[in-house]
Write a protein that binds this DNA or RNA. Structure first.
Lengths: 337, 337
DNA sequence: TTGAAAGCGTTACCAA
DNA sequence: TTGGTAACGCTTTCAA
């Protein structure tokens, strides 16, 4: 196994000092002639920079940490993949970690990721209130996705205009004539940027609707549990005629439950999802979704993080606007007088 | 911003040499008393090891590189997420990169990943024939998923028992009475471990079926193109009565095409997918899939890679067996005499 | 059991 | 423009 050539080897080859070679290779300085000779020698030797040594010396690793709440959620899974791809396109490697739904794991991972000296951090936080975010945000650029980090005003964020999203959904359902709907939300308490209960209450009042709040455990390995849970909420003499699901995982759960109950979607039950995932069109031909444009989220997040890393630009909160995706027949409220 | 404590700081605090502290913290040596004092001082100071410095000095980064062909493919996307989670559980960070379908990008990424000095590499190769794998496999443990690396016998692999999978599918379709089916395969030439054409031909002969080969471009940003392409293959006076899709992305494409053509699945068209993704049950109630057990794949891959890294165990090829997942009504071949 | 010292391969400061 | 030289923070060999 031939030892990899080092900067010193290149320096020896051209008869210059390592420092000179380092500068020349980075195009920081050096006469045209020097630069050319150095580059030739480098390619001739097959020299490749050692990023580890570079990171130790410079303090920057050209790596971005990506910490996400749970890749079991399909939207987050795709988001993570897209972030990694976008970062790579900008010459950054991604160090990914998944808290798998546990806030305490999130905290532990954070410490470990920080130790890897990433140049920046992308995070879809499980617990946006955790105090450690502030420490971190002071040490390196942090961009949160989905929720602002309450205790870390210096961090950037990409959040969703939930008020607008909820309004779209309620207008849509009201327009179809629904009077009683189920709002399927996560058990986790809602956060400042996802004020689910508050918005539900407000919109219900505005549209004159009755809303059943259905708190649902996160998608686990066992979809059957979720299905049963949801099926129970959709049964009964006064059952809701529509379901508004704050996660597409929930929407899928509702579709499964509906099938189990023999309810036709959207004939007997209108279902609205809150994230537009790739195969939503297949999963339910009658599924209406709110699309937040994952591409826009990724662009905004990566854009501002790299601007902060490279050009020291300030981080800010960027808000993403929703649009409603209505597929096929939409299903009016079943009239049951 | 208070400077982070270094090994030297801990050493000063306990009045020992840095070397001693380093050993003590790793539990490599030191008297019980020393170890205890060192640990106390370390926690008191909030000392955290600097993995970069550690990697430079030791040559091992406790990081595993994960290179995948295309995270646009849902199965690979989930696989990547699962691998990262499993590696993290074993104390390894994941450096992920996505070749996004381009073999030349795969090659470039490989070089960049190698420079990061990962302790090992997981790869879902686009081009298993590429010569560079051999170089790499000599430098660090490599485990390929899906295809053996033809030129790198020293690399490990987790491959699928495709012969068994194809047999399951053909038996299933033959049992339903199908005589003419479409086999939807990627444009990319088939590889030693995915000898699609050969197996299709063999099974078709065995079951006395006529097979239309439908070469399909990979799932791109534009699903409509794929849908049209597939719809064309499913039309005509002598159209196939079943479709066998080598990727679930293709299966989804077929389901979309069927809907567009007004074909009922599985009434008018049986569809079989070749990867069991989470929501396959929703996407098509009549969709039959071959399940390769992603959990088993992840366990096998992570298990043998870490055994090679930590205990210098030899790498080998592990074969995963398929099982058929038949959902709801299966749909006999429409009789059209 | 402990410690001194020599790396590991860069980058960055400062002097030439 | 160039080159010494000192970090960067750890691991490891070798000697005490």
């Amino acid at each position: 196994m031939p030892k990899r050539p080092t900067l010193q080897d290149v320096a020896d080859a051209v008869g210059l000092a390592p420092a000179t070679v380092s500068y020349a290779l980075r195009g920081e300085r050096g006469s045209d002639d020097t630069v050319r000779r150095v580059q030739e020698a480098a390619t001739a030797l097959g020299y490749q920079i050692n990023p580890i040594a570079s990171a130790l010396a410079s303090g920057r690793s050209r790596t971005v940490a990506v910490l996400c709440g749970s890749t079991r959620d399909l939207w987050q899974q795709s988001l993570t993949a897209d972030l990694a791809r976008a970062l790579l396109a900008q010459g950054r490697h991604s160090l990914v970690a998944d808290a798998d739904g546990h806030p305490e794991r999130e905290e532990a991972l954070l410490a470990r990721l920080r130790d890897q000296r990433p140049d920046g951090l992308m995070v879809a936080p499980l617990d946006p209130f955790a105090p450690q975010w502030e420490d971190l945000a002071r040490q390196l650029p942090v961009v949160a996705i989905g929720d602002r980090l309450a205790e870390a005003p210096s961090a950037g964020a990409v959040v969703f205009d939930n008020a607008a999203g909820f309004a779209l959904v309620f207008d849509h359902l009201a327009g179809l004539g629904h009077r009683r709907i189920a709002a399927v939300l996560p058990e986790r308490p809602s956060t400042p940027d996802r004020p689910a209960e508050r918005l539900v209450a407000r919109e219900a009042k505005r549209c004159g609707m009755v809303v059943d709040l259905v708190r649902t455990p996160p998608a686990t390995a066992d979809p059957a549990t979720m299905t049963n849970h949801l099926a129970a909420a959709l049964t009964g003499p006064d059952r809701p005629t529509a379901a508004f699901c704050l996660t597409d995982s929930f929407a899928f759960g509702v579709l499964r439950a509906a099938r189990e109950l023999g309810l036709d979607v959207p004939g007997d039950l209108s279902v609205v999802g809150f994230e537009d995932v790739e195969f939503a069109d297949l999963a339910g031909p009658g599924l209406t979704t709110v699309d937040w444009g994952r591409g826009a989220v990724v662009d905004a997040a990566v854009g501002q993080l790299l601007a902060a890393i490279d050009d020291d630009q300030p981080l800010r909160t960027i808000t993403i606007s929703p649009s409603l995706v209505v597929r096929g027949s939409t299903g009016a409220a079943p009239s049951r007088s």
